[in-house]
Design a protein around this nucleic acid. Structure first.
Lengths: 200, 200
DNA sequence: GCTAAGTACGAACGTTCGTGCTTTTCTGTT
DNA sequence: AACAGAAAAGCACGAACGTTCGTACTTAGC
Protein backbone atom coordinates (compact mmCIF):
# COMPACT_ATOMS: atom_id res chain seq x y z
CA UNK A 1 0.00 0.00 0.00
CA UNK A 2 1.31 3.41 -0.94
CA UNK A 3 0.17 5.91 1.67
CA UNK A 4 -1.09 9.14 0.19
CA UNK A 5 0.62 12.16 1.65
CA UNK A 6 -2.13 14.30 3.06
CA UNK A 7 -2.26 17.61 4.84
CA UNK A 8 -2.82 16.00 8.20
CA UNK A 9 -0.25 13.39 7.40
CA UNK A 10 2.57 15.84 6.91
CA UNK A 11 1.74 17.74 10.02
CA UNK A 12 2.01 14.81 12.39
CA UNK A 13 5.42 13.37 11.77
CA UNK A 14 6.05 9.90 10.45
CA UNK A 15 4.63 7.56 7.91
CA UNK A 16 2.27 6.09 10.46
CA UNK A 17 0.27 9.29 10.49
CA UNK A 18 -0.17 9.06 6.75
CA UNK A 19 -1.42 5.49 7.05
CA UNK A 20 -3.75 6.57 9.79
CA UNK A 21 -5.21 9.31 7.63
CA UNK A 22 -5.64 6.89 4.75
CA UNK A 23 -7.40 4.44 7.02
CA UNK A 24 -9.72 7.08 8.42
CA UNK A 25 -10.68 8.45 5.01
CA UNK A 26 -11.81 5.00 4.00
CA UNK A 27 -13.39 4.45 7.41
CA UNK A 28 -15.62 7.50 6.99
CA UNK A 29 -16.81 6.25 3.61
CA UNK A 30 -17.40 2.76 4.90
CA UNK A 31 -19.24 3.94 7.99
CA UNK A 32 -21.45 6.21 5.88
CA UNK A 33 -22.73 3.10 4.16
CA UNK A 34 -22.45 0.34 6.75
CA UNK A 35 -22.72 2.34 9.96
CA UNK A 36 -20.17 2.57 12.74
CA UNK A 37 -21.03 -0.96 13.87
CA UNK A 38 -20.75 -2.32 10.36
CA UNK A 39 -17.41 -0.56 10.15
CA UNK A 40 -15.54 -3.77 10.70
CA UNK A 41 -11.81 -3.95 11.30
CA UNK A 42 -11.46 -6.99 9.11
CA UNK A 43 -13.38 -5.49 6.22
CA UNK A 44 -11.62 -2.15 6.49
CA UNK A 45 -8.27 -3.88 6.51
CA UNK A 46 -9.30 -5.97 3.52
CA UNK A 47 -10.31 -2.94 1.47
CA UNK A 48 -7.03 -1.25 2.29
CA UNK A 49 -5.09 -4.44 1.64
CA UNK A 50 -3.44 -4.47 5.00
CA UNK A 51 -3.57 -6.80 7.95
CA UNK A 52 -6.19 -6.59 10.65
CA UNK A 53 -3.57 -6.43 13.36
CA UNK A 54 -1.56 -3.75 11.61
CA UNK A 55 -4.60 -1.57 11.26
CA UNK A 56 -5.78 -2.36 14.75
CA UNK A 57 -2.48 -1.21 16.25
CA UNK A 58 -3.21 2.34 15.13
CA UNK A 59 -6.22 2.59 17.40
CA UNK A 60 -6.00 -0.02 20.12
CA UNK A 61 -9.71 -0.73 20.21
CA UNK A 62 -12.70 -0.65 17.99
CA UNK A 63 -14.22 2.20 19.96
CA UNK A 64 -11.11 4.30 19.45
CA UNK A 65 -11.37 3.62 15.73
CA UNK A 66 -14.99 4.74 15.82
CA UNK A 67 -14.15 7.92 17.68
CA UNK A 68 -11.28 8.70 15.31
CA UNK A 69 -13.61 8.10 12.38
CA UNK A 70 -16.14 10.53 13.81
CA UNK A 71 -13.41 13.11 14.21
CA UNK A 72 -12.28 12.59 10.62
CA UNK A 73 -15.86 12.92 9.41
CA UNK A 74 -16.22 16.19 11.32
CA UNK A 75 -13.11 17.52 9.65
CA UNK A 76 -14.45 16.53 6.25
CA UNK A 77 -17.78 18.14 7.02
CA UNK A 78 -16.13 21.38 8.02
CA UNK A 79 -14.31 21.38 4.69
CA UNK A 80 -17.61 20.97 2.87
CA UNK A 81 -19.19 23.84 4.76
CA UNK A 82 -16.11 26.06 4.83
CA UNK A 83 -16.86 28.11 1.69
CA UNK A 84 -20.10 29.27 3.30
CA UNK A 85 -18.11 31.19 5.88
CA UNK A 86 -17.17 33.71 3.24
CA UNK A 87 -20.81 34.76 3.02
CA UNK A 88 -22.03 37.54 5.28
CA UNK A 89 -23.39 36.48 8.65
CA UNK A 90 -27.10 35.92 9.05
CA UNK A 91 -29.42 34.89 6.26
CA UNK A 92 -26.77 34.84 3.50
CA UNK A 93 -24.60 32.49 5.49
CA UNK A 94 -27.52 30.25 6.38
CA UNK A 95 -28.34 29.99 2.73
CA UNK A 96 -24.73 29.31 1.81
CA UNK A 97 -24.35 26.61 4.46
CA UNK A 98 -27.55 24.87 3.46
CA UNK A 99 -26.70 25.07 -0.21
CA UNK A 100 -23.20 23.71 0.40
CA UNK A 101 -24.68 20.75 2.24
CA UNK A 102 -27.30 20.05 -0.41
CA UNK A 103 -24.80 20.46 -3.25
CA UNK A 104 -22.34 18.01 -1.80
CA UNK A 105 -25.13 15.45 -1.35
CA UNK A 106 -26.43 16.04 -4.86
CA UNK A 107 -23.00 15.74 -6.36
CA UNK A 108 -22.60 12.29 -4.83
CA UNK A 109 -18.96 12.86 -4.07
CA UNK A 110 -19.06 10.55 -1.09
CA UNK A 111 -20.70 7.14 -0.99
CA UNK A 112 -23.44 6.55 1.52
CA UNK A 113 -24.58 10.14 1.69
CA UNK A 114 -24.41 12.00 4.96
CA UNK A 115 -22.19 10.32 7.53
CA UNK A 116 -24.09 12.00 10.37
CA UNK A 117 -27.51 10.91 9.26
CA UNK A 118 -26.33 7.31 9.08
CA UNK A 119 -24.52 7.23 12.39
CA UNK A 120 -26.86 9.42 14.44
CA UNK A 121 -29.81 7.14 13.77
CA UNK A 122 -27.64 4.15 14.59
CA UNK A 123 -26.36 5.38 17.93
CA UNK A 124 -29.11 7.62 19.25
CA UNK A 125 -30.22 4.89 21.62
CA UNK A 126 -26.81 3.49 22.52
CA UNK A 127 -25.30 5.54 25.35
CA UNK A 128 -21.54 5.91 25.52
CA UNK A 129 -18.62 7.90 24.17
CA UNK A 130 -19.52 7.21 20.55
CA UNK A 131 -23.02 8.55 20.91
CA UNK A 132 -21.70 11.55 22.84
CA UNK A 133 -19.25 12.40 20.08
CA UNK A 134 -21.94 12.24 17.41
CA UNK A 135 -24.32 14.31 19.49
CA UNK A 136 -21.65 16.93 20.12
CA UNK A 137 -20.91 17.28 16.42
CA UNK A 138 -24.57 17.69 15.54
CA UNK A 139 -25.17 20.09 18.40
CA UNK A 140 -22.29 22.18 17.12
CA UNK A 141 -23.85 22.34 13.69
CA UNK A 142 -27.30 23.19 15.02
CA UNK A 143 -25.74 25.74 17.36
CA UNK A 144 -24.12 27.50 14.44
CA UNK A 145 -27.41 27.51 12.56
CA UNK A 146 -29.12 28.94 15.60
CA UNK A 147 -26.49 31.61 16.04
CA UNK A 148 -26.80 32.72 12.45
CA UNK A 149 -30.58 32.67 12.71
CA UNK A 150 -30.26 35.04 15.65
CA UNK A 151 -28.06 37.38 13.65
CA UNK A 152 -30.57 37.21 10.83
CA UNK A 153 -33.27 38.39 13.22
CA UNK A 154 -35.38 35.26 13.50
CA UNK A 155 -38.09 35.54 16.13
CA UNK A 156 -37.16 32.14 17.60
CA UNK A 157 -33.65 31.22 16.44
CA UNK A 158 -33.73 27.71 17.91
CA UNK A 159 -37.02 26.94 16.22
CA UNK A 160 -35.79 28.37 12.97
CA UNK A 161 -32.59 26.34 13.11
CA UNK A 162 -34.63 23.21 13.75
CA UNK A 163 -36.75 23.77 10.69
CA UNK A 164 -33.82 24.47 8.42
CA UNK A 165 -32.07 21.40 9.78
CA UNK A 166 -35.22 19.36 9.21
CA UNK A 167 -35.47 20.34 5.57
CA UNK A 168 -31.87 19.66 4.58
CA UNK A 169 -31.58 16.37 6.46
CA UNK A 170 -34.86 15.18 4.98
CA UNK A 171 -33.36 15.82 1.55
CA UNK A 172 -30.58 13.39 2.42
CA UNK A 173 -32.81 10.67 3.78
CA UNK A 174 -35.41 10.90 1.03
CA UNK A 175 -32.87 11.00 -1.76
CA UNK A 176 -30.93 8.05 -0.40
CA UNK A 177 -34.01 5.91 -0.06
CA UNK A 178 -35.98 6.88 -3.14
CA UNK A 179 -33.19 7.99 -5.44
CA UNK A 180 -35.49 10.76 -6.58
CA UNK A 181 -33.49 13.99 -7.05
CA UNK A 182 -36.64 16.09 -6.70
CA UNK A 183 -36.01 15.77 -2.97
CA UNK A 184 -33.39 18.47 -3.49
CA UNK A 185 -35.89 20.70 -5.26
CA UNK A 186 -38.34 20.28 -2.39
CA UNK A 187 -35.60 21.03 0.11
CA UNK A 188 -34.57 24.19 -1.73
CA UNK A 189 -38.20 25.29 -1.88
CA UNK A 190 -38.46 24.84 1.88
CA UNK A 191 -35.18 26.63 2.40
CA UNK A 192 -36.36 29.53 0.26
CA UNK A 193 -39.60 29.75 2.15
CA UNK A 194 -37.83 29.79 5.52
CA UNK A 195 -35.15 32.27 4.50
CA UNK A 196 -37.56 34.38 2.46
CA UNK A 197 -39.46 35.28 5.59
CA UNK A 198 -36.20 36.30 7.22
CA UNK A 199 -34.89 38.36 4.33
CA UNK A 200 -38.15 40.27 3.91
CA UNK B 1 -42.95 -18.51 28.07
CA UNK B 2 -46.67 -17.83 28.07
CA UNK B 3 -47.72 -16.64 24.65
CA UNK B 4 -50.09 -13.72 24.70
CA UNK B 5 -53.20 -14.35 22.71
CA UNK B 6 -53.32 -11.59 20.14
CA UNK B 7 -55.72 -10.67 17.39
CA UNK B 8 -53.41 -11.91 14.71
CA UNK B 9 -52.65 -14.96 16.73
CA UNK B 10 -56.19 -16.16 16.95
CA UNK B 11 -56.86 -15.60 13.28
CA UNK B 12 -54.09 -17.84 12.03
CA UNK B 13 -54.68 -21.17 13.65
CA UNK B 14 -52.39 -22.78 16.20
CA UNK B 15 -50.17 -21.72 19.00
CA UNK B 16 -47.27 -21.15 16.65
CA UNK B 17 -48.93 -18.06 15.26
CA UNK B 18 -49.19 -16.63 18.75
CA UNK B 19 -45.53 -17.28 19.39
CA UNK B 20 -44.71 -15.69 16.07
CA UNK B 21 -46.64 -12.57 16.96
CA UNK B 22 -44.89 -12.41 20.33
CA UNK B 23 -41.53 -12.74 18.64
CA UNK B 24 -42.29 -10.04 16.13
CA UNK B 25 -43.53 -7.57 18.73
CA UNK B 26 -40.22 -7.87 20.51
CA UNK B 27 -38.35 -7.84 17.24
CA UNK B 28 -39.82 -4.46 16.30
CA UNK B 29 -38.75 -3.02 19.64
CA UNK B 30 -35.28 -4.49 19.38
CA UNK B 31 -34.79 -3.35 15.79
CA UNK B 32 -35.91 0.16 16.72
CA UNK B 33 -32.94 0.34 19.05
CA UNK B 34 -30.32 -1.94 17.49
CA UNK B 35 -31.31 -1.76 13.85
CA UNK B 36 -32.32 -4.64 11.61
CA UNK B 37 -28.74 -5.85 11.47
CA UNK B 38 -28.33 -5.66 15.23
CA UNK B 39 -31.59 -7.58 15.48
CA UNK B 40 -29.79 -10.79 16.25
CA UNK B 41 -31.47 -14.16 16.41
CA UNK B 42 -29.48 -15.19 19.46
CA UNK B 43 -30.24 -12.02 21.36
CA UNK B 44 -33.90 -12.04 20.41
CA UNK B 45 -34.20 -15.64 21.54
CA UNK B 46 -32.43 -14.80 24.78
CA UNK B 47 -34.79 -11.94 25.58
CA UNK B 48 -37.78 -14.17 24.90
CA UNK B 49 -36.21 -17.04 26.85
CA UNK B 50 -36.43 -19.45 24.01
CA UNK B 51 -33.87 -21.30 21.95
CA UNK B 52 -32.22 -19.85 18.87
CA UNK B 53 -33.25 -22.81 16.76
CA UNK B 54 -36.84 -22.75 17.96
CA UNK B 55 -37.16 -19.11 17.07
CA UNK B 56 -35.30 -19.56 13.83
CA UNK B 57 -37.71 -22.26 12.68
CA UNK B 58 -40.50 -19.69 12.49
CA UNK B 59 -38.75 -17.76 9.74
CA UNK B 60 -36.19 -19.96 8.03
CA UNK B 61 -33.69 -17.20 7.46
CA UNK B 62 -32.62 -13.94 8.99
CA UNK B 63 -33.89 -11.98 6.00
CA UNK B 64 -37.35 -13.48 6.42
CA UNK B 65 -37.27 -12.43 10.05
CA UNK B 66 -36.31 -8.92 8.99
CA UNK B 67 -39.09 -8.73 6.42
CA UNK B 68 -41.63 -10.07 8.90
CA UNK B 69 -40.43 -7.51 11.43
CA UNK B 70 -40.90 -4.71 8.90
CA UNK B 71 -44.41 -5.94 8.23
CA UNK B 72 -45.18 -6.04 11.95
CA UNK B 73 -43.82 -2.53 12.35
CA UNK B 74 -46.02 -1.32 9.51
CA UNK B 75 -49.04 -2.82 11.21
CA UNK B 76 -48.11 -1.12 14.45
CA UNK B 77 -47.60 2.18 12.69
CA UNK B 78 -51.00 1.96 11.04
CA UNK B 79 -52.52 1.45 14.47
CA UNK B 80 -50.79 4.58 15.75
CA UNK B 81 -52.04 6.64 12.83
CA UNK B 82 -55.49 5.05 12.63
CA UNK B 83 -57.36 7.57 14.83
CA UNK B 84 -56.36 10.32 12.39
CA UNK B 85 -58.54 8.74 9.73
CA UNK B 86 -61.61 9.90 11.62
CA UNK B 87 -60.66 13.49 10.87
CA UNK B 88 -61.94 15.09 7.69
CA UNK B 89 -59.74 14.72 4.64
CA UNK B 90 -57.29 17.45 3.78
CA UNK B 91 -55.71 19.78 6.29
CA UNK B 92 -57.52 18.38 9.35
CA UNK B 93 -56.34 14.89 8.59
CA UNK B 94 -52.80 16.04 7.91
CA UNK B 95 -52.79 17.72 11.28
CA UNK B 96 -54.24 14.66 12.99
CA UNK B 97 -51.72 12.31 11.37
CA UNK B 98 -48.78 14.50 12.29
CA UNK B 99 -50.03 14.98 15.80
CA UNK B 100 -50.61 11.25 16.26
CA UNK B 101 -47.04 10.59 15.16
CA UNK B 102 -45.56 13.26 17.40
CA UNK B 103 -47.67 12.23 20.37
CA UNK B 104 -46.66 8.59 20.18
CA UNK B 105 -42.99 9.64 20.05
CA UNK B 106 -43.42 12.06 22.92
CA UNK B 107 -45.21 9.51 25.03
CA UNK B 108 -42.27 7.14 24.70
CA UNK B 109 -44.51 4.11 24.49
CA UNK B 110 -42.00 2.27 22.35
CA UNK B 111 -38.27 2.05 22.99
CA UNK B 112 -35.91 3.31 20.32
CA UNK B 113 -38.31 5.85 18.91
CA UNK B 114 -39.38 5.56 15.31
CA UNK B 115 -38.68 2.15 13.80
CA UNK B 116 -38.61 3.64 10.30
CA UNK B 117 -36.11 6.35 11.06
CA UNK B 118 -33.74 3.79 12.54
CA UNK B 119 -34.03 1.22 9.78
CA UNK B 120 -34.29 3.55 6.78
CA UNK B 121 -30.97 5.19 7.58
CA UNK B 122 -29.45 1.76 8.10
CA UNK B 123 -30.57 0.24 4.82
CA UNK B 124 -30.78 3.16 2.44
CA UNK B 125 -27.50 2.13 0.85
CA UNK B 126 -27.96 -1.63 1.02
CA UNK B 127 -29.95 -2.81 -2.00
CA UNK B 128 -32.17 -5.84 -1.60
CA UNK B 129 -35.60 -6.96 -0.44
CA UNK B 130 -35.19 -5.43 3.01
CA UNK B 131 -34.44 -1.99 1.64
CA UNK B 132 -37.30 -2.33 -0.83
CA UNK B 133 -39.75 -3.17 1.92
CA UNK B 134 -38.70 -0.18 4.01
CA UNK B 135 -38.83 2.13 1.01
CA UNK B 136 -42.29 0.89 0.09
CA UNK B 137 -43.62 1.56 3.58
CA UNK B 138 -42.22 5.07 3.65
CA UNK B 139 -43.42 5.80 0.13
CA UNK B 140 -46.89 4.74 1.19
CA UNK B 141 -46.80 7.15 4.09
CA UNK B 142 -45.50 10.03 1.99
CA UNK B 143 -48.03 9.17 -0.70
CA UNK B 144 -50.85 9.50 1.79
CA UNK B 145 -49.48 12.83 2.99
CA UNK B 146 -49.26 13.99 -0.61
CA UNK B 147 -52.79 12.85 -1.38
CA UNK B 148 -54.18 14.73 1.60
CA UNK B 149 -52.13 17.79 0.70
CA UNK B 150 -53.75 17.70 -2.71
CA UNK B 151 -57.21 17.52 -1.15
CA UNK B 152 -56.27 20.42 1.09
CA UNK B 153 -55.42 22.46 -1.98
CA UNK B 154 -51.66 22.74 -1.65
CA UNK B 155 -50.02 24.34 -4.67
CA UNK B 156 -47.43 21.57 -4.86
CA UNK B 157 -48.66 18.55 -2.88
CA UNK B 158 -45.42 16.58 -3.21
CA UNK B 159 -43.36 19.49 -1.98
CA UNK B 160 -45.79 20.11 0.86
CA UNK B 161 -45.71 16.47 1.90
CA UNK B 162 -41.92 16.55 1.90
CA UNK B 163 -41.82 19.52 4.23
CA UNK B 164 -44.33 18.07 6.64
CA UNK B 165 -42.43 14.78 6.61
CA UNK B 166 -39.18 16.67 7.21
CA UNK B 167 -40.51 18.43 10.29
CA UNK B 168 -41.98 15.41 12.04
CA UNK B 169 -39.06 13.09 11.33
CA UNK B 170 -36.61 15.74 12.51
CA UNK B 171 -38.51 15.82 15.79
CA UNK B 172 -37.78 12.12 16.20
CA UNK B 173 -34.09 12.33 15.37
CA UNK B 174 -33.43 15.45 17.42
CA UNK B 175 -35.32 14.20 20.43
CA UNK B 176 -33.62 10.83 20.39
CA UNK B 177 -30.16 12.32 20.17
CA UNK B 178 -30.50 15.36 22.43
CA UNK B 179 -33.28 14.23 24.74
CA UNK B 180 -34.60 17.77 24.57
CA UNK B 181 -38.42 17.70 24.39
CA UNK B 182 -38.48 21.18 22.86
CA UNK B 183 -37.89 19.37 19.59
CA UNK B 184 -41.60 18.57 19.70
CA UNK B 185 -42.49 22.23 20.23
CA UNK B 186 -40.37 23.22 17.25
CA UNK B 187 -41.97 20.50 15.15
CA UNK B 188 -45.46 21.64 16.11
CA UNK B 189 -44.54 25.21 15.27
CA UNK B 190 -43.36 24.08 11.85
CA UNK B 191 -46.47 22.01 11.40
CA UNK B 192 -48.68 24.96 12.31
CA UNK B 193 -46.86 27.21 9.91
CA UNK B 194 -47.21 24.73 7.06
CA UNK B 195 -50.84 23.92 7.72
CA UNK B 196 -51.70 27.51 8.55
CA UNK B 197 -50.94 28.56 5.02
CA UNK B 198 -53.18 25.80 3.76
CA UNK B 199 -56.08 26.52 6.08
CA UNK B 200 -56.10 30.24 5.32
C1' DG C 1 27.34 0.92 13.87
C1' DC C 2 24.34 -0.12 17.61
C1' DT C 3 20.21 0.57 19.63
C1' DA C 4 15.52 1.90 20.42
C1' DA C 5 11.20 3.06 18.59
C1' DG C 6 7.84 2.83 15.12
C1' DT C 7 5.26 0.10 11.89
C1' DA C 8 3.25 -3.88 9.95
C1' DC C 9 2.67 -8.79 9.74
C1' DG C 10 0.60 -13.80 10.45
C1' DA C 11 -1.39 -16.84 13.66
C1' DA C 12 -4.35 -17.79 17.18
C1' DC C 13 -7.62 -16.77 21.15
C1' DG C 14 -12.59 -16.97 22.69
C1' DT C 15 -17.12 -15.36 21.33
C1' DT C 16 -21.06 -14.68 18.50
C1' DC C 17 -23.03 -14.81 14.14
C1' DG C 18 -26.59 -17.40 10.84
C1' DT C 19 -27.91 -21.85 9.64
C1' DG C 20 -28.56 -26.87 9.27
C1' DC C 21 -29.96 -31.69 11.37
C1' DT C 22 -31.92 -34.55 14.92
C1' DT C 23 -34.56 -35.28 18.90
C1' DT C 24 -37.84 -34.19 22.39
C1' DT C 25 -42.00 -32.01 24.01
C1' DC C 26 -46.38 -30.25 23.40
C1' DT C 27 -51.22 -30.01 21.37
C1' DG C 28 -55.41 -31.20 19.16
C1' DT C 29 -58.27 -35.00 17.28
C1' DT C 30 -60.14 -39.26 17.22
C1' DA D 1 -55.88 -43.20 25.71
C1' DA D 2 -53.37 -43.22 21.72
C1' DC D 3 -51.61 -41.22 17.94
C1' DA D 4 -50.11 -37.59 14.23
C1' DG D 5 -48.32 -33.41 13.38
C1' DA D 6 -46.71 -29.13 14.84
C1' DA D 7 -43.51 -26.58 17.82
C1' DA D 8 -39.50 -26.02 20.32
C1' DA D 9 -35.12 -27.56 21.91
C1' DG D 10 -30.41 -29.53 21.51
C1' DC D 11 -26.31 -29.80 19.21
C1' DA D 12 -22.90 -28.81 15.77
C1' DC D 13 -20.96 -26.40 11.77
C1' DG D 14 -18.12 -22.76 9.40
C1' DA D 15 -17.35 -17.95 9.19
C1' DA D 16 -16.49 -13.48 11.04
C1' DC D 17 -16.06 -10.68 15.04
C1' DG D 18 -12.58 -7.88 18.27
C1' DT D 19 -8.39 -8.70 20.42
C1' DT D 20 -3.67 -10.42 21.83
C1' DC D 21 0.78 -12.21 20.95
C1' DG D 22 5.35 -12.84 19.06
C1' DT D 23 8.08 -11.40 15.34
C1' DA D 24 10.06 -9.29 11.32
C1' DC D 25 11.45 -4.91 8.85
C1' DT D 26 12.22 -0.02 8.64
C1' DT D 27 13.51 4.39 10.44
C1' DA D 28 15.73 7.77 13.92
C1' DG D 29 19.05 8.93 17.77
C1' DC D 30 23.33 8.26 20.17
Amino acid sequence: MVPVRTETGTRDAGKGADTRATILARAVDLASVEGLEGLTIGRLAGELEMSKSGLFAHFGSKQELQLATIEAAAKRFRAVIAPAFEAAEGAPRLRAMSEAYLAHLEQGEYPGGCFWAATAAEYDDKPGPVRDAIAAALDAWLGELERQAGVAGAADPASFAFELYAVVTAANSRYRLSGDPSAFAYARAGMDRLLGELEA
